[in-house]
Design a protein around this nucleic acid. Structure first.
Lengths: 118, 118
DNA sequence: CAGATCGTGTACTATGTAGTACATACTCTA
DNA sequence: TAGAGTATGTACTACATAGTACACGATCTG
């Protein structure tokens, strides 16, 4: 485990801090509902990433995509898991089929479904 | 939680047992690598479902779809999670888009990708 | 009817998850 | 130069996960 999650969070937070002093470990920790020492450890990779709820709050705080931050933490959003669990065969087949497809292929499907004639 | 996992497993195992005496709690437990008392508790919903690896072994043993059994256990196969984590935005968008689509729509996509002109 | 096999009850445990609480030392800044 | 704010080190904890170990009484079988 290369602990890219912590590095990423620290990087984004410090960048935001350059123009906004409220992005200290203490204040961000307080806003997402954890102790500063814990956030500090997380950012330095000394503690594993926090729970899904805290990660989502952190993403909102940092202006990042929650799904991306969750992915860096080695997690998948529980609402996506719920969708898959409701129709496991169908979604398992689809996801495995798309596993090695290029981004543009997946994106094409997304658009096809979104504004398609269904 | 209505513990449908345990009920399902017990049902399948007992059905198989009618024609094959080796499908006792003890022997199946031994084959999937857990203690009989644990499998017994799981089947009666007194213990939560086992780990992913044991569930997959159990599915193989019972001739059931691993993804379905995992879903009943409230889990999503870790290999699917890995696929999603590699491209979180893309897959999150696709899955959320398909959340309320009928089975046939999803199935159409699967086939489109499988034997499509990509 | 003895021995094997069966399901299950009870007690226990190791590891991981998700943090808190508090103290300490550093660094701006008014 | 005092005090406000800052990051981090140390120690601890509650709860969940994923089981094992062993004994017991019931039942089946040769």
């Amino acid at each position: 485990m290369s602990e890219t999650f912590g590095r990423f969070v620290r990087d984004r937070r410090e960048r935001l801090r350059e123009s906004d002093a409220t992005f200290s470990v203490r204040q961000v920790a307080h806003r997402i509902g954890v102790e500063p020492s814990f956030l500090s450890k997380v950012e330095r990779g000394e503690a594993p990433p926090p729970s899904e709820a805290k990660i989502v709050a952190l993403a909102r705080e940092l202006g990042e995509d929650p799904d991306v931050l969750l992915a860096l933490a080695g997690k998948v959003s529980s609402d996506l898991q719920t969708v898959i669990r409701r129709r496991p065969e169908l979604f398992a087949a689809l996801i495995r089929e798309l596993k090695n497809m290029p981004d543009r292929a997946v994106l094409r499907l997304v658009r096809e479904v979104r504004d398609g004639d269904w």
